[in-house]
Design a protein around this nucleic acid. Structure first.
Length: 303
DNA sequence: TAAGATAAGAGGGACAT
DNA sequence: ATGTCAGTCTTATCTTA
């Protein structure tokens, strides 16, 4: 299935880039960074038929015709029940995808909806390269967008904003740490517009989202800076304590994670400026200071 | 120069009108 | 529907060590 190329990941620098023969994309097994997709298809099918009968493989038909017709849709819903890393899907995910495939065939019959969908998926395709998420997340995003179409939520709103919101929702749902800002920058849509659409999706589709895990945020920030494992662990400990005391309720998880990390750096004598961390986390220094104040006051009592 | 403080403003949720 | 309120986060500017 996946073969190890041993090349360095552009994001985290680890020698962990793998390529997926099914989807044709290269991804980092450590941080999930995806480089490219849409390489050549059609290999597996042809090969298997050749082996079977030894005859001319022409009967396989045109392996690329589906791809062309669907404009990348077939990438979103491939016929194998595997996720991006080649592992079998969970049963719940499997049924989700099954439903999606049904939808897929249906949507081709409904022209007006299909037009909108194509445009949206085209946008999603562009987004994918900029925010680099796994194919798994893309599927989810496409699925969410379809449901929003079905509920007529897109009417009166821009497709870009809605597809961006769908993608954000998919990231949230799959615990892929991407901020609204990340996606806003990639989509060239204002943050607040995406946020509005996301809330709409969340409310109307009754999506059950796991709370953003600040621990993952720490991992993400640390990977941008040179943070030692020890410092990271300390930050996580601080964060856990804050969560237990409900000190974290209603706060931006990124800001919280950034501050915990900053506190940890100070405690461990690592010289890092608030500015560095703020930049890596995508929050302002002021936010770090505010959270830092709270974390510190609480942490001292527990030292 | 980095860190802390302060003020003004945006955006949205809860709740009442 | 519209308005108010408390709370959060951001931007900008100034002060402090």
């Amino acid at each position: 299935m996946s073969s190890n190329h041993g090349t360095n990941c552009p994001r985290c620098g680890k020698k962990s880039m793998l390529s997926d023969d099914v989807t044709g994309e290269q991804f980092c097994s450590k941080c999930g960074f995806v480089i490219s997709e849409k390489s050549e298809e059609s290999g597996p099918e042809w090969r298997s038929f050749q082996k079977d009968s030894g005859s001319n493989p022409a009967r396989a038909g045109a392996p690329s015709s589906l791809t062309i017709h669907d404009m990348g849709l077939s990438t979103v819903i491939n016929p194998l029940n595997k996720d991006a890393s080649g592992k079998p899907l969970s049963t719940s995910m499997k049924s989700t995808i099954e439903r999606l495939r049904t939808w897929d065939s249906r949507s081709q019959a409904h022209e007006p909806v299909d037009r909108n969908l194509r445009q949206a998926l085209g946008e999603l395709n562009k987004l994918k390269d900029k925010v680099s998420v796994s194919a798994n997340v893309l599927e989810k995003a496409a699925y969410i967008y379809r449901k929003s179409l079905e509920k007529k939520l897109v009417r009166g709103r821009s497709i870009s904003a809605m597809i961006a919101a769908s993608l954000y929702a998919a990231c949230r749902d799959t615990q892929t740490p991407r901020t609204l800002k990340d996606i806003a920058d990639a989509a060239n849509v204002k943050r607040k517009d995406i946020a509005r659409c996301y809330r709409l999706l969340h409310h109307e589709l009754e999506l059950k989202m796991p709370v953003v895990d600040s621990v993952q945020c720490i991992a993400r920030i640390s990977s941008k800076l040179k943070i030692t494992e020890k410092t990271k662990r300390y930050a996580i400990k601080v964060l856990k304590e804050a969560q237990e005391r409900k000190e974290s309720a209603g706060k931006d998880p990124m800001g919280l994670a950034a501050s915990a990390l900053y506190l940890s750096c100070v405690k461990n004598g690592v010289s890092v400026t608030q500015r560095d961390i703020a930049e890596a986390a995508g929050v302002t220094e002021v936010t770090i200071r505010n959270r830092y104040k709270g974390l510190k006051a609480e942490h001292i009592t527990n030292d």
